[in-house]
C-alpha cells in the first residue's frame, strides 16, 4: 500500500462534500419523474414524522415542543385490551392496551436511524474496499475480494442472530451486524467500475504528474464513481430497514427501541394476527412504503448513473 496517506477522515468529508454538490446539481433529475417525486414525498413525510415523533424540551427557552404521538407508546393500559380503532385510538390498541398509532409513530425513528446509519456505513466501507481493491490490484485485490467472497458466503439473518446473541440485542449491535454484511455488494460494483476508470487517460496523466495514490483514488477516481455510490446507498437504506425488521420479527430486536418489525413480532407472539388487523397492517404497510420510497428514489438515481436509460425517454 501507499506510504503517503492523508487522513481518511479528510478524504471522507471531502467525499461527502463533493457528494452534496453533486446531488444539488443533479436534483433536477427528479423533475418530470413521477416515481422519484412520489418517493421523495413519502421519504420527507417519514423524516418529519420521525423527527417530531416524541416531545422535545428546549431548556433555555423553557419550551416543550409536543410530540406527534397521542400517547406514550410504551404505556400499558391507556386503552382496553385489543380495542379496534376509535377516536381515542385511531389505530386501536395492543393486547396490553398500548396505543398502536403512538407505537407506529415512535417506530419511524428507529427505521430512520437504522436506515441512514447502516446504509452510510455500509456504503462507506464498500466504496473504500472497492476503490482500494481495484486501484492497487494484485494481492491487495486478491485478499479484499476473497474477504468479500467470504462475506457473501455468510447467510445474513443467521449471522446477525449469532452476532446479536454475542453482543446483546441493542440497536447499535443490530446496525453493526447489518453493516458487516451489507457492504459487500457496493464493494464489488465499485471495484468493477474503478477497474474501467483505472485505464482511462486522466488517471494516467495524474500519475504522470506524480500525484499520490490517495490523491488519485479519492480526488480523481472517486468523483466518477460517486453516482453509483449514491445509488447503492439508496438501495442499502432499503435493505437495512428490511433486515432490521426481519431481525426484530424473529425476536432479536432491541427491546428498548420499538421498531415496526418489533410491532409485527408483538402481534405475532400475542397470536392476534387474525383479529387485530389494525395492529398488523399499519407497521407492515409502513415498512413497505418506506422501503418503496427509497427504491423509487434509487430508480431515479439509476438514470443519473446510466444516462442511456434517460435518453430513451
Amino acid at each position: 500500500m501507499s506510504t503517503e496517506r492523508t487522513s481518511p477522515i479528510d478524504s471522507a468529508t471531502g467525499a461527502v462534500g463533493d457528494g452534496l454538490d453533486y446531488v444539488r446539481t443533479k436534483l433536477e433529475v427528479f423533475e418530470g419523474d413521477r416515481l422519484g417525486q412520489i418517493g421523495l414525498a413519502i421519504l420527507v413525510t417519514f423524516l418529519l414524522i420521525g423527527i417530531f415523533a416524541r416531545p422535545y424540551t428546549i431548556e433555555f427557552l423553557d419550551l416543550t415542543i409536543p410530540g406527534l404521538t397521542p400517547h406514550d407508546p410504551g404505556e400499558r393500559a391507556v386503552g382496553g385490551r385489543l380495542e379496534s380503532p376509535s377516536a381515542d385510538h385511531p389505530l386501536g390498541t395492543t393486547d396490553m392496551g398500548r396505543d398502536v398509532l403512538s407505537q407506529l409513530i415512535a417506530g419511524t425513528r428507529v427505521t430512520l436511524i437504522v436506515g441512514s446509519l447502516a446504509a452510510f456505513m455500509a456504503v462507506f466501507i464498500g466504496t473504500n474496499v472497492g476503490l482500494v481493491s481495484a486501484y492497487f490490484g494484485g494481492w491487495v485485490d486478491d485478499v479484499l475480494m476473497r474477504i468479500t467472497d467470504i462475506v457473501y458466503g455468510v447467510p445474513f439473518l443467521p449471522f446477525a442472530i449469532v452476532l446479536v446473541a454475542i453482543l446483546g440485542s441493542s440497536l447499535v449491535n443490530i446496525i453493526v451486524a447489518i453493516v458487516l454484511i451489507l457492504w459487500r455488494s457496493t464493494a464489488r460494483v465499485i471495484r468493477s467500475q474503478v477497474l474501467s476508470h483505472k485505464q482511462r487517460p486522466y488517471v494516467e496523466s495524474a500519475q504522470a504528474i506524480g500525484a499520490s495514490h490517495t490523491r488519485i483514488m479519492y480526488r480523481h477516481i472517486l468523483p466518477n464513481v460517486l453516482p453509483l455510490t449514491f445509488l447503492y446507498a439508496a438501495f442499502a437504506v432499503g435493505w437495512a430497514v428490511i433486515a432490521e425488521a426481519s431481525l426484530s420479527f424473529l425476536g432479536f430486536g432491541d427491546p428498548n427501541m420499538l421498531s415496526w418489525g418489533e410491532m409485527i413480532y408483538n402481534v405475532y407472539t400475542a397470536n392476534a394476527i387474525r383479529e387485530a388487523w389494525w395492529w398488523v397492517f399499519p407497521p407492515g404497510i409502513a415498512i413497505m412504503l418506506f422501503v418503496m420510497s427509497v427504491f423509487f428514489i434509487g430508480r431515479t438515481l439509476e438514470e443519473v448513473v446510466n444516462p442511456e436509460l434517460r435518453h430513451q425517454k
Partner: peptide, 18 residues
C-alpha cells in the same frame, strides 16, 4: 416489482397466510 421488492418476507408471508 418495486413494491414486491419493498416487502419483507415475513410480511408477505403473514398477508398470504391471513
Amino acid at each position: 416489482t418495486l413494491i414486491a421488492r419493498s416487502s419483507p418476507e415475513f410480511w408477505v408471508g403473514i398477508v398470504l397466510l391471513s
